[in-house]
Computed example of a mutant assay.
Amino acid sequence: MSVDQADDRPDLILVVDDDADIARFVEFNLKLHGFEVVHASDGQEALEVIEGRRPDLAVVDLMMPRVDGLELTRRLRANPMTSALPVIMLTAKGMTVDKVHGLAAGADDYLVKPFDTAELVARVSATLRRNKEAREVSPLTGLPGNSRIRREIRDRIRTGADYVVGYVDIDRFKSVNDRYGFVRGDEFISTLARSLHRAVVSVGRPPAFLGHVGGDDFVIICSPEQIRPLTQRAVVDFENAADQLYDPTDRERGFVELKDRRGNTRRAALVTLSIGVSLSDSTKRITDPLAAIAVASEMKSVAKGQPGSYVAVDRRRSL
Rank of each mutant, 00 (worst) to 15 (best):
E239G: 06
V100R: 04
A291F: 02
S278P: 05
D169W: 02
L14T: 03
R205M: 13
E225R: 15
P307A: 13
A122F: 15
R315G: 10
P289N: 06
I149M: 02
A296R: 00
Q226R: 08
R53G: 01
R253H: 09
A122H: 15
L258I: 14
T272Q: 03
V164C: 06
A161S: 13
V121K: 15
R123M: 05
F238R: 00
G69A: 09
L47A: 10
R251T: 10
K132T: 09
E152G: 06
T141M: 06
V59C: 01
V112K: 00
L270V: 05
A292E: 03
R172I: 08
M299N: 07
P307G: 09
A208S: 10
A294T: 04
Y163H: 07
G43T: 11
V271H: 00
G215K: 13
D178W: 04
L90K: 03
S125L: 08
P307S: 12
F28M: 10
V311R: 03
D4W: 15
I286T: 04
L85P: 00
A122L: 14
A104H: 10
K31R: 14
P65G: 12
R154I: 07
T141C: 12
D116I: 11
E187M: 08
D68L: 08
G102T: 11
L14H: 07
K93F: 12
L279T: 03
L273T: 01
T191P: 00
V16A: 02
A92E: 09
D186Y: 04
V295D: 00
R262A: 13
E71P: 02
S280W: 00
G145F: 01
T272A: 12
A241Q: 11
D8Q: 07
V137F: 07
T91N: 02
L196A: 10
T91H: 03
L14Y: 03
S282T: 05
V137N: 01
F25D: 07
H197L: 12
Y180Q: 12
G142T: 05
T249R: 11
D109E: 12
E36T: 13
A269M: 13
A241G: 05
Q244M: 12
H212T: 09
R228Q: 08
R74T: 05
P224I: 13
Q306C: 09
D217T: 15
M63V: 12
G43Q: 03
F28P: 00
R317K: 14
A234I: 01
R129T: 06
T73C: 14
V38M: 05
R77N: 14
G214V: 05
D116H: 15
Q44K: 11
D19I: 03
G254C: 04
V124K: 00
G102A: 08
H33K: 11
G106D: 06
D19E: 07
K259G: 02
S282C: 09
L128F: 10
Y180N: 12
R150K: 13
H39W: 09
A268L: 08
A92V: 13
L76S: 01
G106Y: 13
L270K: 08
D42M: 04
P55Q: 06
V137W: 00
